[in-house]
């Protein structure tokens, strides 16, 4: 894999979670192409290496490990400009067939992971009185998608966090927003029956699967310096509201 990298002294520092594959990996390449210094993490080591990319093997819900990671980032980079909380897991099953262990796993990664990274990320943004945090929700929240109670509840919590933290961090010059993708051809939806995906796509205003480019476009918008007056917002893809 090749990514064109022209990094400068003042390159924005962008931290992305869940970068081993899928949308996270796409966003790493996207922001490296844009000249950012990119930091990423995942539970296991990716099978790729890129210039100007630093990887940490960390479980986003492990508070001690996350604190160590942020200490190391502070030591090496002093601050971060952007945080993209992409790491997430889904679970699809009828509520009556969903073990609590599944619910706890989903809440750990999606809610605790997002909270921990927002908390520690804001600490590395606050000294410069500027920063951008982008969280990941899903159209399954406004659609109240049946069969995904654990996932939808976790992402509803992410939306609430986004709105509250948008207010809490506003005085520090840090914005917090969320993108709500439609299904995208990644591991997250692999294994979901085709008719389920078709039904979901049919409920969108624009009837197609999403692409990583669709997601990157929204993230670009939230990260833009011109978006300093936009916080606590959830932007859904595909015309879902």
């Amino acid at each position: 894999m090749q990514a064109e990298t022209k990094i400068t002294m003042n390159a924005p520092i962008t931290l992305i979670t869940g970068t081993r594959k899928g949308i996270g990996q796409y966003l790493v390449e996207h922001y490296l192409r844009a000249g950012h210094q990119v930091i990423g993490c995942s539970r296991t080591q990716p099978e790729w290496h890129l210039d100007n990319y630093v990887h940490y093997n960390v479980d986003v819900a492990d508070e001690t490990a996350v604190r160590h990671m942020f200490s190391d980032i502070r030591r090496r980079f002093k601050h971060i400009d952007h945080l993209i909380n992409n790491a997430g897991i889904a679970a699809m099953n009828h509520a009556m067939l969903t073990p609590i262990s599944t619910l706890k796993n989903v809440l750990d990664t999606n809610v605790i992971g997002t909270f921990l990274f927002c908390r520690e990320g804001a600490k590395l943004m606050q000294t410069r009185r500027t920063g951008r945090i982008v969280n990941f929700s899903t159209v399954a929240v406004p659609l109240s998608l049946e069969g995904e109670s654990a996932y939808v509840a976790s992402k509803a919590a992410v939306e609430s966090l986004t709105k509250v933290l948008g207010r809490e961090f506003a005085a520090l010059g840090i914005t917090v927003n969320a993108v709500g993708p439609v299904p995208i051809e990644t591991d997250l939806i692999r294994g979901v029956p085709a008719d389920k995906i078709d039904n979901l796509v049919a409920r969108q205003a624009i009837h197609r699967l999403g692409t990583p480019q669709d997601v990157a476009n929204v993230v670009d918008f939230f990260l833009s310096p011109a978006s300093s007056f936009i916080t606590g917002q959830i932007l859904y893809l595909g015309g879902v509201s």
């Binding site: 200490s71 502070r74 600490k123 606050q126 000294t127 005085a171 520090l172």
Partner: peptide, 16 residues
């Protein structure tokens, strides 16, 4: 209140 939060974070980092 936000000033106190900023102070606490910065002092925690200094202690570390």
């Amino acid at each position: 209140s936000i000033g106190l939060v900023s102070l606490i974070v910065a002092v925690e980092q200094g202690i570390e």
